[in-house]
Amino acid sequence: MGMIIAVISGKGGVGKTTATANIGLGIAMYGRKCVVVDFDIGQRNLDMILGLENRVVYDLVQVMDGEASLKQALIKSKSNENLYFLAASQTKDKSVLVSSKIKKLVDELSLQFEYVILDAPAGIESGYEHTIEFADSAIIIVNPEVSSIRDSDRAIGILDSKSQKVKDGEEVDKYLIINRIIPEMVQSGDMLSSEDILEILNIKLLGKVAEDKGVVEASNQGTPIILNPKSLAGAAYKRIAARLCGDNIPIQEPTVHNKGLVGKLKGLFS
């Protein structure tokens, strides 16, 4: 049985979908079979970040309603054959989700894939609750700012009270990714440090991802940043995926970008 991982944040726009795409691809590149599922019903965009929007024929709601088979709806990634994608419905809203059907779907997926990654919608409403309902573990994405941290804290509280695993008396594993770290700002004390965040949220750290302008461009082009060997964020996601696959890689601190001599000279003349 594969592992079911929900990617959550509470607050919107912190990088869940970006993380889902990159971690999924990273796991696939590591050689494991992985499926990424867009649970953001009505606001899908995982398809775009993976560059697969023109391949979507059937979505997960149709699979749950028996209008399409799982095989018909699963889309193979163009960059790695270990990665598959299941799209959200764009025309329906999240009220169509029903627990029993979700359970059936994720159970089926976990038979076929080693990793089943669910991209949660923003917020803590029913769409969120359905995403975490049958998860074995959760990846919590935060940005280093107080509102993101408080909203994640809230989402973790709900995870710890409403997921099926907790109701059965077990624990849902929780892993933290701190995304969009700007090292210069952390150094000058203008941005919350990772230690502060970990102290508040009190969960395991899975990785730190720096702010990286390449991310937006990569998303626009539908080629996840992990495919860019020069990107710092891409390298961070590669390490995160390896950790999820059981590799014991130490956490790397995003460092202050040190302008070389050429950079300094350029600075003089600009």
Binding site: R150, D151, R154, I158
Partner: peptide, 8 residues
């Protein structure tokens, strides 16, 4: 004995 999280 557990941390009290936002909303609890």
């Amino acid at each position: 004995s557990e941390p009290l999280r936002s909303g609890q």
